[in-house]
Design a protein around this nucleic acid. Structure first.
Lengths: 288, 288
DNA sequence: ATTATTAAATGGATCACCCATTCAATGGAA
DNA sequence: TTCCATTGAATGGGTGATCCATTTAATAAT
């Protein structure tokens, strides 16, 4: 589309066809008279339209990570909408991890590499809203991790195992220096590395999202009570040995047993398991 | 600030403490001098602050589904921000499925029951942005469904099995009447019901998110080529029988084999597997 | 050549409006 | 009284003008 080439895909005249207030006298003329359902009115709003168009360009491959959208003022004019409503759309896309907005000359709206942490937020919101329960989350985590162990045994590469080994070293260090909260952070990383070693980013994303929440509970528990899982590094070593030996059955058994003991630790004091404690504030490294 | 109570948690004077432009002369005074990392500047913007505060109230349980936020004009004043920037925040939260905005007197921003379809959007975005691949998604789906079968065998209730049975009936009908695309829709529903029968909404959400994308490919394939999976209802029946008999091993085997044959069908014509075809437009029922 | 200054482009935010929708209150007709 | 049409206020949806803060490239001064 663009004329003028410049180092980083300046994405000029994207010739966005105007949106222009089709005042809601629409009703969307049912088309095929198959289903007598009249639910989805909700009067199409312009910012939704804008988001959708941009996502469409994304799906079509016209927009790719690294590309820059036209400046707000210009794009607003191209679309025939006010700058304010365009910004609402851009904001939403930014929150969705699709865009990154950067100030200054040479700034603009840049398409991002997908941010896998977004799924964590979904989980957190679902938990906050009571759509899912902590119990469901823990249960799902156990099952998914069981799957992860199998996949990791099948697919983990040397580099993955080395990273896990290095993580265990850090855990040992944190333990010996009594840095309990850092040790929790190590655990979080351990599961992240384990998930990554499946070689499947979808699985990894899923594991991360359920683990992130879980670790908040652990963090809160450790921070408030000062208790800590005994023989953690030792158990990790055993597990890694089984994993390295591609012994899925043993590795799975070890991990399950560990998860159960963590669960018991958490459930000792049900009060500390409250959502609020875990979700309310934001620990360093726990968030973008 | 008005008193006056009305039926549905009018959520008056929430006494939101003002935000009020702390002009970015912040630098966030490192606190513990542990990590010499200086990455996360990105100048805290007001809409982020607002989103965070509302999510905080949610996590704290102060705000619950069904509650209504103060009117835009009022809330903006309470927070000490302009109405526009407040709207940017509300928009983002609405896109995130946390809020629903409703016009008219007695309208407002209502906290929603969590919308599990949000995870679908995350998957779609990740795919659009090239963060995950179709291959990873398919692979993850196979593994997750394997897990689902086990859980469904263990936990499915009578009502779940009946719902699956009814779904198969619809499939039979659609098949006999040659409504191929409706049959795809039935498949989508089948997996949704199967996922629900695990009794775990987290698992269900995950399965839905990977299945939704997958079904777009199937839909596109069927729509373009007119081919259709042979003996579909029959295979479903066999599977359901195994499930009802709580025979996880058999059910798993049947499903795996079916998934493989679907995969073969899709891969016959690699061109049709392009992302664009599947993600670009929005089929009825596929989206909110 | 190096450094400080300036100017322009861009996102961030505000203000003052106006429109469209919704719903309770009002009031007139049956 | 009961019912239905009217009306008006509250609310979200949207616009346009205007200013601020940040960033970067071009320019000027050293």
């Amino acid at each position: 589309m663009s004329t003028k080439s410049s180092p980083r895909a300046p994405q000029r005249s994207r010739t966005a066809s105007p949106i222009r207030r089709e005042r809601a006298t629409d009703l969307r003329a049912a088309g095929s008279a198959a289903a007598p359902t009249f639910k989805p009115i909700h009067t199409r709003r312009t910012f939704e339209e804008i988001c959708e168009r941009i996502r469409e360009q994304l799906a079509l491959g016209v927009l790719k990570p690294g590309d820059k959208l036209p400046a707000e003022r210009e794009l607003a004019q191209q679309l025939g909408v006010s700058r304010n409503v365009l910004r609402e759309a851009l904001r939403s896309l930014e929150m969705a991890g699709v865009l990154r907005l950067q100030k200054g000359v040479k700034g603009g709206a840049f398409i991002q590499q997908g941010d896998t942490r977004r799924m964590n937020e979904v989980m957190r919101d679902m938990l906050s809203l009571g759509t899912i329960s902590v119990r469901e989350l823990s249960e799902a985590r156990v099952h998914v991790l069981d799957l992860v162990v199998q996949l990791a045994c099948a697919n983990a590469r040397r580099a993955d195992l080395d990273a896990l080994e290095a993580n265990i070293e850090r855990t040992v260090l944190a333990t010996s220096e009594g840095r309990l909260l850092d040790r929790v952070e190590c655990s979080r990383e351990f599961y992240k590395l384990l998930a990554a070693s499946t070689g499947n980013k979808v699985i990894a994303m899923i594991v991360d999202s359920v683990t992130e929440i879980h670790m908040r509970f652990v963090y809160a528990k450790v921070a408030s009570s000062g208790v800590a899982m005994a023989r953690l590094a030792e158990k990790r070593r055993q597990f890694l040995t089984a994993l390295s030996a591609r012994n899925a059955e043993l590795a799975g058994r070890l991990l399950r047993s560990h998860l159960e003991s963590v669960q018991r630790m958490l459930e000792q004091d049900p009060g500390a398991m409250s959502l609020h404690v875990a979700l309310a504030d934001v620990q360093p490294g726990m968030r973008r």
